[in-house]
């Protein structure tokens, strides 16, 4: 590894096992702390600088490109089993900056900042001219589809009444005319069959999340709804630190909420920052 003594840092190869190990710790940290959207996987290490740290250790400054997977953020499925969202599904990339401390052989994330953005419509249509593009999350068809799908799911449920946590994806499909949505739900203290006023139903203190995929087909005089939800057995603990070390700290209060229906399905999230 070349040393850059005059610059104060060294620059290992982006594909060095050393760099990749640090990047993987960063990705694991990201997925352990992200509270909305989808898990992301490593796509490319853009830059790496390694700074000496006083009194001991080194700090890796990494720039990483990620890709959205199809696993919801709170899905306990290991990242290795999550599929990358393909270009035809309208892929979403993430640009991340990490600072990772290596001390006594232990890696600790000190800082993480990511910004996600969908592929351009032009690029998607280049690969797949008829593929549905991502719609705005506040698109009336998307909002309606989620509402109808959740009502359908609750009407068929023998268990808890589920409330919407987040709409994570929406696509308008031209043929057949329909709207495809993905959204997260959480169980309440109400039984689905007994609910008269959902406002009186509260999320359980020990959250039980689920993730739904639904399509609402437009028909003359009505609509057809197909909805399938996966309820997660174990409640993941968002923000639970896997890394150890006295300098590790995460301030979840700093974690922004999901993008509130912006002009694009774009989000940025600051996972934690403390040195």
């Amino acid at each position: 590894v070349p040393l850059a003594t005059d610059l104060g840092y060294r620059q290992p190869n982006c594909d060095d096992p050393e760099t990749e190990q640090v990047a993987q710790v960063a990705i694991d940290y990201l997925n352990s702390n992200v509270l909305w959207g989808y898990k992301h996987t490593l796509n490319q290490i853009d830059k790496v600088k390694v700074w000496p740290r006083r009194p001991m250790g080194e700090v890796y400054e990494l720039e990483i490109d990620t890709l959205e997977t199809t696993c919801y953020a709170l899905d306990p499925t290991p990242l290795a089993n999550c599929s990358v969202r393909q270009l035809a599904e309208h892929a979403v990339e993430g640009d991340c900056d990490f600072h990772v401390l290596k001390m006594n052989g232990q890696l600790t994330v000190l800082f993480a900042k990511c910004h996600s953005s969908p592929d351009s419509a032009e690029d998607v249509l280049k690969v797949c001219p008829n593929c549905p593009l991502l719609a705005l999350l506040n698109d009336t068809h998307v909002v309606h589809a989620v509402d109808v799908a959740l009502k359908t799911f609750n009407a068929q449920s023998n268990g808890s009444y589920y409330k919407l946590v987040e709409t994570s994806r929406g696509q308008r499909v031209l043929l057949p005319p329909s709207t495809y949505v993905e959204f997260a739900v959480a169980a309440t203290d109400c039984a689905a069959k007994d609910v008269t006023d959902p406002a009186n139903c509260n999320l359980l203190s020990e959250k039980q999340y689920g993730f739904c995929k639904a399509t609402v087909f437009e028909k003359v005089g009505g609509e057809d709804v197909e909805v399938a939800c996966t309820l997660f057995q174990a409640q993941p603990q968002p923000g639970a630190m896997k890394e150890a070390g006295p300098t590790t700290a995460v301030d979840l209060a700093e974690t922004p909420r999901p993008p509130v229906l912006g002009a694009q399905m774009v989000g940025a999230w600051l996972v934690g920052a403390k040195m």
Binding site: N43, D46, V48, L87, E93
Partner: peptide
Amino acid sequence: HEVRVTVGGSAGFSPCPGRIRHFKV
């Protein structure tokens, strides 16, 4: 792969960015 060479210092050879694991968006 893009290969960057830093000149005018001892930073030397820095083969970054690394490989693309899936596809570029």
